[in-house]
Design a protein around this nucleic acid. Structure first.
Lengths: 237, 237
DNA sequence: ATCCCGATCTAAACAGTGTCAAGTCGAAGG
DNA sequence: CCTTCGACTTGACACTGTTTAGATCGGGAT
C-alpha cells in the first residue's frame, strides 16, 4: 500500500520530456542531486533531535531526504558510518566551543578550567541529541581515524588547561595528581550533563525555578565545587 | 533458512507423549512452567551483559527462556515493562550497596560521602549492563510508581549524607549551597562511571597499569577531589 | 468426578527495521 | 559516439516488537 505512495513522484519523470528541462536544479529529484551527503547529515541531526538517538532510523532519514533506503549506504557504508559522521561534526563544534572558552580564561588556569566546564555543560544542554550521540560509543565507530583525531581535540584542550594548572610541560607525562584532577573535572561536568539530559534534575528543577534553572542556577552552584589546582597538586615553575 | 534452525527444539515436544511424564518438573517445558517471570528477568540480565542495553531483543530473551515471542507480554506488558523490572532490581541492589557504604561512614559526613562515592562507581563498573540500563530513561518507564519509589531510595541515601554534612534537618529544604554540593558529588561519581563505562579511560588505562587501574588507581585519584562540606557551605549546630 | 474458568502460553500475522545483490540511470571522459 | 563509472533504485532477506485469536493446563466449585 505504501510502497505505491512514493511512485507518483517518480512517474512525474514524464513531465520532463516535453517541457524545458528546469535550468535551476534547486530541488533536484533526479538520480544525482549532488548534495545528498549533506542532506542526510542534516536529516539525521533533525531526527535524533526529535526522537532521540535510539529513535533514529536509517530508512526514515532516507525518506526525509527523498531517496531510497539503500542510498545512504553509498555515502556512509552503513548506519554506523552515518552516525559517526554526525558525531564528528558534533565534536568539531564541541572542540570550537571548548577552545573559545579556554581562550576566555586567559592565563589563569583556574579560570580556564571553569570556563571550559561551563562551556562543556552548556553545549551538552543546548545540543542534547548531538552530545548524546557523541558519547554513544556503541553507535559510533570509535576506531575511525578521522573520528579519533577530531574527538581527541576536545580532550586535549581540557588537558592543556590541566597542564597549565600543574605546570606540566607538553612533552612530560601528567603526574598522577594532575591526572586525577583531569578526571575529576571531566567527570563532574560530564556527569552533570548526563544527569541533566537524563532528566534526573527535572524534579528539583520543578521546585526551584523551572527548567532554565538548570543552566542558570544549578550549574553555577555545582561549578562552585569544580576541583581547583590549589591543594597538594604539584604546581611547578 | 535459519527460520527453520529453531524448529527441531519445538518439534521434540512429541517426545513427551510416549514417555512417562517426568515427575520432576525441573526443566519444565510445558505451558506453565511456573517461574517464567524470573527466567525472563535472568535472561535479560545475561543478554544485556553480553550485548549491551541496545543489543537487547525481546525475541532473543524469549528464545533463551524457551518460550514464544509473545509470552513475555503476559508478564510484563511490553519490552519497556520487562526492562523496567530489570532496572528496578538493579536499583534495589544499588540502594543496598549505597546504604551499606553510608553506614560504614559512621557519623563522619565526609566519610559517608566518600564511601558512597566509591561504592557508587564500584557498583557501576561491576554491574555495567544493569547500571547503564538504570539510567537509560528512554528504555525504562520512569513514571511507574514502584520504579520511582525504589529508585528514589538510592537518591535519598546520598541526600541523607548531604543533610548531615550541612546540618539540614529532614523537614527543612536543602539550602542552595547544600543542593550544589549534592549535585557536585552526584555529578562527579556519575560522570566517572559513565566515562569509564563508555571506554573513555581505556587509552589512559593502557598506559597506566591496565584495566584494573581504573578502580584501583584512577578512582582514588579522582575521589581526592570529591567536594567536601568544608568551605563556605553552611554547617549548622 | 466433572465441568468450567481464568491464567498462561502458542501460532500466525503485520508493520517496521538494516543490509545486500542486481539492475538502472546520467553524466563525463576516452 | 560509446563506454565507463559513480549515484541511486528495486527487490529481497532476516530480523525486530506487538497484536489477535486460539490452544492448553491447573485448580476450585458444583
Amino acid at each position: 500500500m505504501n510502497s505505491v505512495k512514493m511512485q507518483p513522484a517518480r512517474k512525474s519523470r514524464a513531465a520532463k520530456k516535453p517541457g524545458k528541462t528546469p535550468a535551476v536544479p534547486q530541488a533536484a529529484r533526479a538520480y544525482h542531486h549532488g548534495n545528498l551527503r549533506e542532506k542526510l547529515v542534516a536529516a539525521t541531526e533533525a531526527l535524533i533531535l526529535e526522537r532521540g538517538v535510539d529513535g533514529f532510523s536509517l530508512r526514515e532519514v532516507a525518506r526525509r531526504a527523498g531517496v531510497s533506503p539503500a542510498a545512504p549506504a553509498h555515502h556512509f557504508g552503513d548506519t554506523r558510518g552515518l552516525l559517526t559522521e554526525v558525531a564528528m561534526r558534533g565534536y568539531a563544534d564541541f572542540g570550537d566551543v571548548l577552545a573559545a572558552a579556554d581562550a576566555r580564561g586567559g592565563n589563569d588556569p583556574a579560570k580556564r578550567l571553569h570556563e571550559q566546564g561551563q562551556a562543556y555543560v552548556t553545549f551538552a544542554l543546548k545540543n542534547p541529541a548531538r552530545f548524546a550521540l557523541m558519547f554513544r560509543t556503541d553507535k559510533v565507530d570509535i576506531t575511525d581515524a578521522k573520528f579519533l583525531e577530531i574527538s581527541n581535540r576536545s580532550f586535549r584542550t581540557l588537558e592543556g588547561a590541566i597542564r597549565a594548572a600543574t605546570g606540566t610541560e607538553a612533552e612530560e607525562e601528567l603526574s598522577p595528581d594532575g591526572f586525577g584532577l583531569l578526571m575529576a573535572v571531566w567527570s563532574i561536568v560530564h556527569g552533570f550533563s548526563h544527569l541533566a539530559l537524563g532528566g534526573e534534575f527535572d524534579y528539583a528543577a520543578r521546585m526551584r525555578g523551572g527548567k532554565e534553572a538548570i543552566l542558570k542556577s544549578f550549574l553555577p552552584l555545582t561549578l562552585k565545587h569544580l576541583p581547583l589546582p590549589s591543594g597538594n597538586i604539584q604546581k611547578a615553575r
